[in-house]
Each structure stands twice: as structure tokens, then as C-alpha cells.
Design a protein around this nucleic acid. Structure first.
Length: 673
DNA sequence: AGACCCGGTTTTTTT
DNA sequence: AACCGGGTCT
């Protein structure tokens, strides 16, 4: 690069002027917001920073979001173009929330910054610069299930399976491939470490991956990992297109940096490779995504990524009472490797967290229902209460009890709206309309029809491949093609219409709905519950002007959860939150219950086998406990049958079993509830 | 031959 | 509860 050469020829050394120093000279009175007064000193230091690279280590509840929000406002107040600020967050919900808060703080300019997840930013960027990258700008995005379906197709073809040996399932293969990309580990290593029983099948597994990669290339398909990989490669391609992109981005802010993986770290590096203006915020104690290739070491390695990285620690907790912090600190004390200091708060006192043992799982549910009603009597509304759990299915029993007691709730995590079979069915039609080469969707849609199984579907696909039939034109009468004999004419007419005719996406969805409804009713016994989801989808589609953007959004950020388990009471604005701990990230409640804290489930028996996974479970428990502001209830049933191990689990989680009585109060719930 | 049904097996966590 | 594989029915 020419710039680089010039620099080398210079005889003198460039010295960076630290932004801190500049900040001190800045006349604070020119700002609308009184930053110094509204922030604590370390928050202020982070907020006042302008140029340069910063690592903000911010413990749980220390006002991390607040800091980012104020920094955005201040950059804009300082005169920087909102569009030159890029805020990368973990979910789009988080990004929207920050922009909303910044707008309230300052003004509407704050909503004009660029924000989103790594994946959504990749999606937009790759489409915009598709030509320079050598991609088809209307590529489709594969979600996890789509990837697995393709892998399944490959797996069942080409004689990969011989019936004698057990062969990895589609989800397993998908996981292995994805983990390989996200960690940079070779497939061989992953198999040896985590799936030693598949070592004899290594060659076949590698072959499947090869075919999978080719398949994606050929059909303009990108899975989640590809989005990141293509973006990274693009950023380091040195092309004019990259320079054009980077010229428009002056400041990069990254939230939840502890949960990024090495590709995302490279992307951050790539984005700030010229400007060096980057601020990442995170907490190594809250790193809970290593299963996705995230490494808490990433945050430790950040200072190596850029020159003169300044590290700012924010340690005063504003969320929880001291007793809860003591409890959380105790859990984290047991960690093998730790970097952050102990959190402190000025909120002295508070009740001790309760550790509640119940006779069985149902008793646990009943206790929680009872306690929630009590809290509500005390004036704590349901929105201030949450029940958290390690795995989505832990809450099944509780959901039944809540329904019995008429307590409205919303569940987060677990089954996603978009992953429900009926929504995938509808999307299938739309995806064919958008990309007639989408074989997976064809397959799915064809199989919905009575009398069409894998073989007939394949015949239709063959005829499509040879263009004997096509959706570019309406099927004519008298045409003797396969679709007539199998009565698929109506399907082809529908697909022809939604593919060809110009109309708003919502009208297309409506047409699909009308066609699909009878099939849907036939396919699902519980179609009445599922119907709600279809209506919601119809509503969502009204917000879109193009089918492609609807489909892309559905693949990347389906923010809506399935309504199957939720009854009508949920339309009320007061509701209890049920959430996986992962989905509770960054949130807080007055009172928090953590359920199923029983050894063998949390930590799970599998994760207890390896130090790294066990440590991650510990951090997860830490994240869960630091969500609470005032009350924390940790509950466990003393009698849980574990099918896998064939034993009965009864001990509390090892993370809390040795806690002293000055840190938590033990309770026992007896039968006579 | 191919669609459909049934029963045994296996479950984190998410973009 | 969903998935896979095998067995049965049309």
C-alpha cells in the first residue's frame, strides 16, 4: 500500500496524542449533556475518548450500556457524522435499545448511526459490495436448520451411509463444520477431541464437507459462518471497494466483546485497520459462548490487536445489593482463571440470596408460583421478575403451573419462531419464489403434498433441473408433465404468480397462506395453536417492501418468539419473564429465580468432563446471579431422574454447595404446599 | 416402488 | 419432542 511506503521513508517517529489528554482540554460547557456529572470517573473516561483504541472491561451491572450510549451521544455532539459510527452488538434488539436511549438522551441524530450484529452488518456489506467480492448480490442466507437440511441431503446421497455403522446425524455434522470454521480448528482435531467414536468415518465426513462447500458456492448460499468469513476476507482484500467502505466508517464500537470469536476479532481489526478508532466493551467473567467458538481469551488479546490500546476498568456496580454481589463473587472465586476485580456497590445490605431445596421438580414450580404471587402482593410487578434456567426445557413443568395460576409469562430462548415447522413451510414457498434454485425449499414444499414422498419430489426436481417444467410460465392444459399426473398444477400456478407478479410481500404471504392452510391443517394436530404464528408472520410481512429483505431478516434476526406455548393472557402488558440464561444476557430484574441448579443439570454431566466447559458453566451461573437487583432465589429439586445416566440426581450444583451461611440462606420446601 | 406409520434414541446454550 | 431408521401397507 502506498501510504505505508511513505511512512517508512520518514525519519522521525510519529507519536500518538492520547485522546484522554485532549478530553481534559475540551470545554465541557459546549455539550448539551453534562457528562461529568452524569457519569462516574471511569465511565466518563471511556465516554470522553475519541480517537484511538480502547478496551473497556466492565463488570456486570456497571453501566456498560449506559457508557456506550453516552459515548455515541458525545461523538455526535462533538460533530461527527452519525453515519460514520458503527455499533456492533450481540443482538439487533440491543442495538435498537441503545440507539433509542441515545436518542432520548440527545436527539434523533443518534438513531442514524449504523448498528447491528456482526452477521447483519456482514449481510448488508456483502450485498452492497457483492460485485467486488465475486458474490451474487441476491445470495440467500441459510440458518442453522437450512444448513443441516443441505448436509442431510448430501449425507443420504452418494452412499455415505452404510447401514452397518452408526453415522453422525445432520446436526452433529453441521456442528462439527461450524465449530471448525469458528475456532480455526481442523475437522480432524475436533473429531479426535469430541467425537472419537467417529474417527473411522473421518474421510467420509471430510468428503461431505467438501460437497457442502461446493453446493453453497454453486447455489449462491451463505450460512452464518460464511457471512463472517466472507466479510473478513473482504476487509483484508485491499481492494478499492474496501477502501471506499472504510472511508465511511470513522468509529467502531463493539459490545459484549468477550463473546466474539477469532473471526469477529479479525473483522474488528479489519474495520479499524486504517483509523485505529475502536472501542470494545466486555467482561471476561461473562463469556458464555465458547460452544460457538467464542473465546474469553479474545478480550485479553485485544491489546495485541492495535497499537497503544488503553484499558479502562469500570467496577462500580449499580444494579445489585451487596449480598447478591457477594454471592456472585463467591461463585466466580472458584474459577480457575480470572482477570476482573471484585465488584462493589454502594447499595449496602439487602436480603441474603436463598438457596431453596424442593422435594421434586413440580414442588419447585409450585414454590416459584407461590413466591411470585407473594412478591406481587408486596407490589413488585411481574415485569420486574424473571425465572432463569440453563436449558430451555427446564421450564416445561413451571409453564404448566404458571398457566394454572393464571400468571402471564413470556419465554425467551429455546424454540425460535422461525424454526417452527409451520413457519418454515411458509418460508419455503417464498424462498422458491425468490430463488427457484433453492432445492431445499422445493423439497420441503413438495413433501407437504399428499402422495408426494422423497422419490416423487426428486422426480419433480429432476424435471426442474432439465427445465422440462419451470415456474417461469404457467403450466398449460394438455401438458403431460409429471406435475399433472401428481396434481401439482395448483402449486405451480401459485409459485408462478408469486415469482412473477409484482406485488407487496404481504400479499404474496397471503397467497401462500391461502394455499397452505388446508395442507397445514392436515399436517399438524395442534394447528390451532400454530395458527397464531402464521398470523403473526402475516403481520410482520407488512413491514417489508421487498421479499428478499423479508427473507434475509428472517434468517438473520428473527426477533419474534413462537406463540405456541403462550396463551391469550399474554396480550396483557404485565408479564413474567422466563428465559434461558443466554438470552438473559445484559438484562436485569428486581427479583430473579434460577431453577434446576442441580449437579448433573447445571453444570450438566457432559460439561463436567472438561475443565473449559465446566468453567463456562460457572460463568453462566455468575451471569445468572448478577441479573438480580434485590432478590435472588436459587432453587433445586432434590429428586430428578436422569434418563441418560440412569441415576437420580439429588445434589445441589457444585457452584453453590459449599457456600457459607453468611452468603446465602438455605430453605427446604416440604410437601404440604 | 414409494408413501406412511411406529418405535427406539437422543436433548444445552445462538447468530 | 424431534429425528432416524426400519417395517408395513397401498
Amino acid at each position: 500500500m502506498s501510504n505505508y511506503k511513505q511512512m517508512n521513508q520518514k525519519k522521525y517517529k510519529l507519536k500518538r496524542i492520547y485522546s484522554q489528554n485532549i478530553a481534559k482540554q475540551v470545554d465541557e460547557s459546549k455539550f448539551v449533556i453534562n457528562y461529568q456529572q452524569e457519569l462516574n470517573p471511569s465511565q466518563y473516561e471511556a465516554v470522553a475518548a475519541t480517537e484511538g483504541a480502547y478496551l473497556i472491561i466492565a463488570g456486570a451491572g456497571t453501566g456498560k450500556t449506559r457508557t456506550l450510549v453516552y459515548r455515541v451521544a458525545r461523538l455526535i455532539e462533538s460533530g461527527y457524522d452519525p453515519n460514520s459510527i458503527l455499533l456492533l452488538t450481540f443482538t439487533r434488539k440491543a442495538a435498537n435499545e441503545m440507539m433509542r436511549r441515545a436518542s432520548l438522551l440527545l436527539d434523533d441524530r443518534c438513531s442514524k448511526i449504523r448498528g447491528g450484529t456482526f452477521h447483519s452488518f456482514a449481510n448488508i456489506t456483502l450485498r452492497k459490495y457483492a460485485k467486488a467480492i465475486g458474490l451474487n448480490s441476491s445470495f440467500s442466507i441459510l440458518d442453522q436448520g437450512d444448513s443441516a437440511d443441505i448436509i442431510n441431503l448430501i449425507r443420504s446421497q452418494n452412499g455415505f451411509i452404510d447401514n452397518k455403522k452408526r453415522f453422525p446425524k445432520k446436526d452433529t455434522l453441521n456442528k462439527i463444520f461450524s465449530f471448525s470454521v469458528n475456532t480455526g480448528k481442523r475437522i480432524e482435531e475436533i473429531i479426535e477431541e469430541d467425537y472419537p467414536h467417529f474417527i473411522p468415518l473421518l474421510d467420509k465426513i471430510l468428503d461431505i464437507q467438501k460437497v457442502y462447500v461446493q453446493y453453497k458456492r454453486k447455489n449462491d448460499l451463505l450460512d452464518y459462518d460464511d457471512l463472517l468469513v466472507y466479510l473478513r476476507d473482504f476487509l483484508f482484500s485491499g481492494s478499492a471497494a474496501v477502501n471506499a467502505l472504510l472511508a465511511t466508517i470513522k468509529f467502531i464500537l463493539v459490545d459484549e466483546y468477550q463473546d466474539t470469536n477469532h473471526i469477529q476479532a479479525k473483522i474488528v481489526k479489519g474495520l479499524a485497520q486504517f483509523s485505529g478508532n475502536v472501542m470494545v466493551v466486555g467482561d471476561d467473567a461473562q463469556s458464555i459462548y465458547s460452544f460457538r467458538g467464542a473465546s474469553f481469551r479474545n478480550i485479553m488479546d485485544f491489546p495485541k490487536l492495535f497499537d497503544n490500546v488503553q484499558v479502562i476498568k469500570i467496577e462500580e456496580n449499580y444494579r445489585s445489593v451487596q449480598t447478591i454481589l457477594d454471592f456472585a463473587n463467591h461463585i466466580y472465586d472458584g474459577a480457575i482463571e480470572k482477570y476482573t476485580k471484585v465488584l462493589y456497590t454502594r447499595k449496602k445490605g439487602g436480603a441474603l440470596p436463598y438457596i431453596v431445596a424442593t422435594a421434586n421438580a413440580n414442588m419447585q414450580s409450585k414454590f416459584i408460583v407461590e413466591k411470585i404471587l407473594e412478591l406481587r402482593e408486596e407490589g413488585i410487578i411481574l415485569n420486574d421478575i424473571a425465572v432463569l434456567f440453563r436449558s430451555s426445557f427446564f421450564s416445561f413443568d413451571l409453564e404448566i403451573e404458571l398457566a394454572k395460576a393464571n400468571i402471564p409469562f413470556q419465554k425467551f430462548g429455546g424454540m425460535k419462531f422461525i424454526e417452527t415447522a409451520h413457519i418454515k413451510d411458509v418460508l419455503g414457498f417464498l424462498r422458491i419464489a425468490s430463488n427457484p434454485k433453492d432445492i431445499i425449499s422445493w423439497y420441503r414444499v413438495l413433501l407437504l403434498h399428499e402422495g408426494i414422498g422423497p422419490k416423487s419430489a426428486q422426480r419433480v426436481l429432476d424435471e426442474l433441473a432439465t427445465a422440462r417444467i419451470t415456474i417461469e410460465s404457467t403450466p398449460r392444459k394438455g401438458d403431460k408433465s409429471f406435475i399433472h399426473t401428481k396434481n401439482l398444477v395448483d402449486l405451480f400456478i401459485l409459485l408462478y404468480k408469486i415469482h412473477t407478479i409484482k406485488m407487496p410481500p404481504t400479499e404474496k404471504v397471503q397467497m401462500v397462506y391461502d394455499y397452505y392452510y388446508p395442507l397445514f391443517k392436515e399436517k399438524y394436530d395442534d394447528f390451532n395453536k400454530r395458527k397464531k404464528d402464521l398470523e403473526i408472520f402475516l403481520n410482520i410481512s407488512e413491514n417489508y417492501r421487498s421479499l428478499d429483505s423479508l427473507l434475509a431478516d428472517m434468517a438473520i434476526e428473527p426477533m419474534i418468539d413462537s406463540m405456541i406455548d403462550i396463551d391469550a393472557t399474554d396480550k396483557e402488558d404485565e408479564y413474567l419473564t422466563l428465559s434461558t440464561i443466554h438470552s438473559a444476557k445484559g438484562l436485569e430484574w428486581h427479583s430473579v429465580f434460577i431453577i434446576h441448579v442441580i449437579d448433573g443439570y447445571f453444570p450438566s454431566a457432559r460439561s463436567a468432563e472438561k475443565i473449559e466447559t465446566l468453567e463456562e458453566e460457572r460463568r453462566l451461573m455468575y451471569v445468572a446471579s448478577t441479573r438480580a437487583k434485590q432478590n435472588l432465589f436459587v432453587t433445586y429439586p432434590m429428586n430428578m431422574y436422569d434418563r441418560e445416566a440412569g441415576t437420580t440426581l439429588s445434589k445441589p450444583s457444585r457452584f453453590i454447595s459449599d457456600i457459607s451461611s453468611d452468603k446465602a440462606e438455605g430453605w427446604l420446601v416440604e410437601d404440604d404446599f
